[in-house]
Nucleic acid binder design. Structure first.
Length: 656
DNA sequence: ACGTAAATAT
DNA sequence: AATATTTACG
């Protein structure tokens, strides 16, 4: 009756309860073929789905191989190779399935042994069908026990899920909480499945009595909490348990956190490593972009939706591009702002992360290295690191849940309720970035003068945008509007789901708050490309985020980032920078949409490879600088470390 | 309780 | 095939 299977999977559910015993999947084990046959027939008559085998070892293999494919095991006690007790023991250990022992002897000892080993019942041989008709109760009992256990051990929030048992316990509905469900043990699986007497295969229904823990997905919100917790604890004290407490997420287990922490640290490590590599190649490598892409394991860098990449072979070094990373100057009012406590920063961060846009960005941005972080402040992960991790996630995250893909049930608006700017302005002052803007200056960037340049242009649907203009390399004298148009289109094309809200609108510079980090690049006069590209993501983005932003923009548009503060020192570092900053004509560029540009670019072979190379450099340097900046801020060593920053800048200048 | 590595799931 | 998560273990 393989047909009944269907029902068996639901039998536990409220609704499926009606037919429950019918189709219950039973594995009968007995070395005595005759007895087995008899048993089988009786079980069948009870409407159970029966699978039989005369070999206990084989039985175990079958169970291991078909986890969740059996609801109950009924086994003879005395068997060669492996007796029923052993089987019982292993089953109990590995799959927590109800096991009924069968024996021709009623020795108290044996019965006791069976019970001790976890047998849920001990039947004496000859078994009467009446006895078998009720064995399903053990399945139910088991299930109930498990349920209770879970509830006590970890507050499983989804009682409903529990009821459903087999259902998946992750309520992704509310981004904030995840639910973990029943746990089970998993084991190795031997791959062979053998003959048995009759059928054995099952369709893969889901929830018999044993099942694995549902996979927890670390969505942005959850991760945000995680990062927040880690931040609060400090990387050194951030241990699973503490993090778990801080996160305060129902159903989340320490293991979950530990696991995530593991990955997190790994990401951190990689990041730093990568950073070092980059540092090494600082002046030479022409295509760090690609290197990073494959070297650090973060594939699809900036191209979460696409796979096309720019060929490294076509990446000549970029001569005219340069990067100026003038994080806030060591002097100036900003510094005062920097005084904000880490706590504040954290708050800001969390707030920020809460922002839909940021979230999106996080998902999209790729992570970049921050080499110096470790060397400068050993053991003191910087927020950049954390961010980096987040970013790394985005790459993969996108795969699972695209923030832009409504089909995933991931809804930006609802998922990220507005948070009151408890810290308001403080928010951005974190790293002295408050009220400062990161200026993006690049010679390759298209000129823009309309603040609304990046607004949605629905017309762009899905058709490929002409991006020949991206070939700008250095020449680019194409007219501004055209550029804008293209950028817009391109960006949009890949960025905004047709039905999504025009995030752009939200970021219209006009509507943006002041204290946010901004990226603005204005006409660049460096080299000979009068290109001008300015973007402002004015959304109270903490440095961390700003970094991400920069990474993307810098990487894609390849250019220079500068903070307003930079002005103070621009002369010292670069003449080119002068008067290149005007955040006025800048257009708002929605956070996180930069990567799309990259994507678009990638899709166009027309992109000037050199640009990419340069962008990478820029990005990396920017990173370094930012990190430094960050560290400085955190450590209050602004002045002291500034020298370093200078170096970085000088380095960048050289390139230019 | 931790952290790391192996096992699995996607 | 590469990652992300879950488990097993010391």
């Amino acid at each position: 009756m393989a047909e009944n299977q269907k029902g068996s999977s639901d039998f536990m559910d409220e609704d499926g309860g009606d037919r429950f015993p019918v189709g219950m999947r039973v594995l009968a084990v007995d070395d005595d073929r005759t007895c087995l046959k008899v048993l089988e027939n009786m079980l069948r008559s009870c409407q159970y789905h029966v699978t039989t085998t005369t070999n206990s070892i084989k039985a175990l293999e079958m169970l291991r191989m078909n986890r969740n494919k059996f609801d109950l095991v009924i086994s003879d006690v005395k068997m060669p190779d492996m007796d029923g007790f052993k089987l019982l023991e292993l089953v109990g250990l590995e799959m927590d399935l109800p096991v009924i022992m069968l024996s021709g002897h009623k020795d108290k000892e044996l019965v006791m042994k069976g019970v001790i080993h976890g047998a849920c019942d001990y039947l004496l041989k000859p078994v009467r069908i009446e006895e078998l008709q009720n064995i399903w109760q053990h399945v139910v009992r088991k299930k109930i026990d498990r349920k209770d256990h879970n509830k006590t051990s970890a507050s499983i929030e989804e009682t409903s899920n529990m009821a459903g048992e087999g259902s998946h316990g992750i309520g992704s509905e509310n981004n904030s909480d995840q639910i973990i469900k029943v746990d089970r043990k998993r084991k190795e699986q031997s791959e062979e499945r053998e003959e048995d007497d009759d059928d054995d295969n099952r369709a893969e229904d889901e929830e018999p009595s044993s099942q694995k823990k549902p996979r927890l997905v670390w969505d942005a919100e959850l991760h945000r909490k995680f990062v927040d917790a880690v931040n609060r604890l400090g990387l050194d004290n951030a241990v699973p348990k503490k993090i778990l407490d801080l996160m305060n997420v129902e159903g989340l287990t320490r293991e979950n956190v530990a696991s995530h922490l593991q990955k997190f640290r790994l990401g951190l490590r990689k990041a730093t490593q990568q950073g070092n590599q980059v540092a090494t190649a600082f002046g030479g490598v022409s295509d760090p972009y690609l290197q990073m892409g494959s070297a650090d394991g973060y594939r699809d860098f900036c191209t979460p939706y696409g796979s096309r990449r720019i060929s490294s072979t076509t990446l000549p070094s970029y001569a005219s591009g340069g990067i100026y990373c003038g994080l806030n100057s060591p002097s100036g009012s900003t510094i005062g702002g920097i005084g904000s406590s880490l706590a504040q920063w954290r708050q800001a961060q969390s707030q920020n992360t809460t922002n839909p846009i940021n979230l999106v960005r996080n998902y999209q941005l790729s992570m970049f290295s921050a080499n110096q972080s470790s060397s400068l402040l050993p053991g003191t992960p910087t927020s950049v690191d954390l961010n980096r991790f987040q970013q790394s996630n985005c790459t993969t995250g996108i795969r699972q849940v695209s923030p832009f893909d409504n089909s995933n049930g991931f809804t930006l608006p609802s998922a990220f309720p507005d948070h009151k700017p408890a810290i308001g302005k403080t928010n951005n002052s974190l790293f002295g970035l408050s009220s400062n803007h990161l200026l993006f200056q690049g010679n390759l960037v298209p000129p823009t003068h309309n603040s609304g340049a990046f607004r949605n242009h629905s017309s762009l649907g899905s058709s490929p945008v002409n991006t020949e203009t991206f070939d700008t390399g250095i020449s680019s004298s194409s007219n501004v509007s055209e550029y804008n148009e293209r950028w817009q289109s391109t960006a949009q094309l890949s960025n905004f789901p047709s039905n999504s809200l025009p995030l752009n609108e939200a970021f219209d510079s006009n509507q943006l708050p002041h204290n946010s980090v901004k990226f603005s690049s204005s006409t660049s006069h460096i080299g000979n490309s009068p290109a001008d590209f300015s973007s402002i993501s004015d959304n109270a983005v903490p440095l961390e985020d700003a970094l991400g932003e920069l990474n993307c923009q810098g990487g894609l548009l390849g250019n220079i980032i500068q903070q307003q503060r930079w002005e103070d020192h621009k002369q010292d570092y670069s003449e080119n920078m002068s008067n290149t900053f005007n955040s006025e004509n800048s257009l708002s560029f929605p956070n996180g949409h930069n990567s799309y540009l990259g994507h678009s670019l990638n899709q166009n072979n027309t992109v000037d490879a050199s640009l990419v190379g340069q962008m990478n450099d820029a990005r990396m340097k920017l990173n370094d600088a930012c990190i430094l900046q960050q560290m400085t801020s955190q450590e209050g060593l602004d002045q002291g470390n500034f020298a370093y920053l200078d170096d970085i800048i000088s380095e960048m200048n050289k390139q230019v």
